[in-house]
Nucleic acid binder design. Structure first.
Ligand code: ZN
Ligand code: ZN
Ligand code: ZN
Ligand code: ZN
Lengths: 155, 155
DNA sequence: CCGGTAATTGAAATTCTTTCTCAGCTAGAA
DNA sequence: TTCTAGCTGAGAAAGAATTTCAATTACCGG
């Protein structure tokens, strides 16, 4: 029923990583993981909290922050500024993660491109730097906003 | 004497851009520009403020924020999270800007690499995205910290 | 060189975000 | 079922960023 999220989240990639690392899979935590995995992959703690409360009403904001911290520590999320230049966003990641961020509507498109990965790695190696993860953000106008003369389609 | 900063800052790239855009070149503002241009290219507003006060004692923190906002608006700086995952950093930029960020000591190394630029542009173009600027962050361990077993050399 | 004026300023208040503390609760191993 | 280390939410606190406002100032035009 309304608790479906527990089973779904429990089977997810994030939950399994937390479990492997020795963290308990509690209700509040699973709600946060569910939100991150099924609803928002690019979100501020506040947004995660708002969605999470809808799923698990007793959820506290502290738990959202704590869970995001754990995910970051495990390399499953990272803090980033995407566009709005002020809110703290945390996003899923896989050691490498490339974004197209629209200046006009804020839309974020994930891109996967091995060539960038290779190039970045060889570049780092050439400078004696041992890379752990890499993130590229390309800002500009999405296809939709290039046509539109004016403002945001969403929000 | 102690006012050298005014002339130096006034002749800088940032001041000239602000002037062109119609902003006044005031003492406090020039102090901030001086700091950004001559002392810190990757800094938090707080750090900019601290250095700025040394140059222009009456400087207010609000002015630092306001100046950083203007620079961002003009595309001369950008907000970013680099490493510490919590402080707001603003950095200079030139439409493209690539960083090596050390997980251990926090050192930030600028890298310029045309191949990345080309690759990113062609990638974006292929997806109908019109790029304006691009930023790559590679996290990992700098040469120094690969050797060291433990903690930060700086700070 | 000298006003006049709109832009800019710092301080303080305010708001927003993040972290900390702590007493009670709970997942999960045994 | 029991036990306990780990986890929880609430509220307090700390930190960052923004807003407000009366006083000041850059700089254009005269
Ligand atoms: Zn768009
Ligand atoms: Zn993404
Ligand atoms: Zn280092
Ligand atoms: Zn840089």
């Amino acid at each position: 029923m309304t608790d479906d999220y527990v089973e779904i989240a429990r089977q997810g990639r994030l939950a399994s990583a937390l479990h492997t690392a020795g963290y308990k899979l509690t209700g509040p935590r699973l709600a946060v993981l569910y939100v991150l995995e099924m609803e928002l992959c690019h979100a501020s703690p506040q947004e995660v909290y708002e969605r999470g409360v809808a799923i698990y009403p007793a959820l506290g904001l502290s738990t959202v922050y704590r869970t995001l911290d754990i995910l970051t520590e495990l390399g499953l999320a990272r803090p980033a500024y995407l566009g709005d230049a002020s809110q703290r966003f945390t996003v899923h990641h896989d050691q490498r993660h490339y974004h197209l961020v629209c200046d006009a509507c804020g839309a974020i498109t994930d891109v996967d491109e091995d060539r960038i990965t290779e190039l970045a790695c060889s570049l780092a190696a050439g400078l004696g730097f041992k890379p752990r993860g890499q993130y590229l953000e390309i800002y500009g106008l999405c296809q939709h906003c290039q046509a539109q003369p004016a403002r945001p389609p969403v929000n």
